[in-house]
């Protein structure tokens, strides 16, 4: 079982590190961009902050709304801070899910079928949870 150079731990920690760097750099690009957008005269971010700090709850932002607005070439041609941030956040979300898939594979490689089963149960319950979440 120890003939593999990389243990499950090595694989998982590499995935976590790369996932965090990948999503973090998207968020960083978006953050810097939002600061540039504000200083170049766009008032949108200022309005958001005024509402946020004023205790307002009327703001709503979903990835779908962003996609619908700017789908197509427009999306590529107009660099948009919210888009970068959202892509970063969504990929950050994927990291723990990918981690379970990777551990199922790592345990399979080590012929540890009980833990392959455990990983699959966790994935299954998570999918049920996601479906439940959408119906709530």
């Amino acid at each position: 079982m120890t003939q593999h150079k990389h243990t499950a731990e090595d694989l998982i920690s590499a995935l976590l590190r790369k996932g965090v760097l990948f999503s973090g750099s998207f968020i960083l690009i978006g953050w810097v961009q939002s600061i540039l957008e504000t200083s170049s005269g766009s008032h949108r971010h200022e309005e958001v902050w005024t509402t946020l700090l004023g205790g307002g709850s009327s703001l709503s932002f979903s990835p779908e709304s962003l996609m619908n607005q700017r789908l197509g070439w427009d999306l590529l041609l107009t660099p948009h801070s919210s888009l970068w941030i959202t892509l970063g956040l969504l990929s950050l979300l994927m990291v723990p899910i990918l981690r379970i898939i990777l551990s199922a594979w790592a345990f399979y490689r080590e012929r540890d079928y009980l833990f392959v089963l455990f990983s699959c149960v966790v994935l299954g319950v998570l999918s049920v949870g996601l479906l439940l979440g959408h119906s709530l």
Binding site: S60, S62, G88, L126, G129
Partner: peptide
């Protein structure tokens, strides 16, 4: 992280995650 990732979808859908604050 795993449990949070499962519920994060709901918060995204409801529009509770504001990019300006989240970044």
């Amino acid at each position: 992280g795993v449990t949070a990732a499962a519920s994060a979808g709901v918060y995204f859908q409801r529009g509770d995650i504001i990019p300006e604050l989240a970044a």
